[in-house]
Simulated assay, not measured.
Amino acid sequence: MLLSGRIPEHVAIIMDGNGRWAEMRGLPRIEGHKRGAERTREIIAAAAEVGVNALTLYAFSIENWQRPTDEISMLMKLLEVYLRKEFDELVEKGILFRTIGEIWRLPRNIQDLLHDMTERSSENSGMKLVLALSYGGRNEIIRAVRKIVERKARPEDVTDEYFESLLDTSGISAPDLIIRTSGEKRISNFLLWQAAYAELYFTDTLWPDFTKDEFFFALHDYQMRERRFGAVPLRVGF
């Protein structure tokens, strides 16, 4: 049962386990990705339902470009189909769409589609839906450093706030909760700067099986934690 007033403002999810889900059932890996896409729709709706302000989904990492060419092609096609199918409904529900990562590396048709989604939802005031595509945390930091060099910023001007303004996530709060499915217990180059004080939640459940109920369980687990951000907890009665 969720507690009122303790919903994380920003939830980020590493959606892992699609390929293993398919292999365990003797199916082609792409079938796992298709089922994972269906699950994504459910979790987006659930996050908006409980009042999450921003939801970031690690959809395609920069390391994923190392996968076989045919698998990448199928993933790009699946991404296009999913976006075209879901976009109108997301906009109607007030979702504000953002992307992070090296979007220029994606196929041109997907770049155009993502640009259109960003533009058409720019006036929306609902939950921010952030897709991490061709994204890597180290790469994001390096690109930010390059901007500092190009702008010839003075060392004393390079503050946390200034650096954050150069990241892909500029204008979006740091994640309060990072969820990873599939049993792996690492963040795999995801939001490295932003995750400094994020709470981490790991589950053995593969992404295609990660239901709305388990998402709520992860939120409840977050609600039970005491976040101190490096400080000493307050002691009542002393």
Rank of each mutant, 00 (worst) to 15 (best):
E150N: 08
A196V: 09
D168K: 11
Y201P: 02
D160M: 11
D204L: 00
E150P: 03
P155H: 05
P175T: 03
T181E: 01
L191P: 02
N139H: 14
S182W: 14
P208Y: 11
Y201K: 03
G136T: 14
I142M: 14
V145K: 07
E164C: 03
R186T: 09
G137I: 02
R151I: 04
S182I: 12
E150Y: 05
G136A: 01
E184R: 14
A144G: 06
I141V: 14
F163C: 05
D168P: 05
S182V: 12
I179R: 09
V158F: 09
S170K: 07
E161Y: 04
F163L: 10
K147I: 10
L167R: 04
G171K: 04
Y197F: 11
Y201D: 00
S188T: 06
P175A: 00
I141Y: 14
S182E: 09
A198I: 13
F163A: 00
G183L: 10
F202Y: 15
E164I: 02
A196T: 10
I178D: 05
A144R: 07
E184L: 10
I179H: 04
Y197P: 01
D204K: 04
I141G: 06
Y162D: 01
P208N: 06
E140Y: 11
D157H: 07
R151Y: 10
L200Y: 03
L206T: 09
G136N: 04
I178M: 04
W193H: 07
I178H: 06
K152E: 13
T205R: 15
S165E: 04
E199W: 06
N189K: 13
R180Q: 03
G183T: 14
P155K: 08
E140N: 08
E184Q: 15
R146H: 15
P208S: 02
F163M: 06
A174G: 08
L200V: 11
D176N: 15
S188K: 14
L177S: 02
N139F: 12
R143E: 07
L166Q: 08
T181S: 08
E184H: 13
L167Q: 09
K185P: 07
L166E: 03
G171D: 00
A153V: 10
G137L: 02
I172D: 01
E161D: 13
I148R: 00
R180H: 04
R143K: 08
S165N: 11
L200I: 09
A144L: 06
E140W: 00
G183N: 09
V145S: 06
S182D: 07
G183P: 02
I172Y: 09
G136E: 00
F202H: 08
N139L: 11
D168T: 13
F190I: 05
R151H: 07
A174T: 11
Y162A: 00
S165P: 00
D204N: 09
T169L: 14
E140I: 12
E150W: 04
G137S: 11
A195N: 06
R146E: 14
I172S: 01
R154D: 13
A174Q: 13
L206M: 15
T169P: 01
K185M: 15
T181A: 04
E164R: 15
R154N: 04
F202W: 10
T205M: 07
I178L: 15
A174H: 13
A144F: 13
S165Q: 05
T169N: 02
T203N: 03
R151S: 15
D176T: 12
D168S: 15
R143T: 03
F202M: 11
T169I: 02
W193S: 07
L192C: 06
G136P: 08
E140A: 13
D176P: 06
K185L: 12
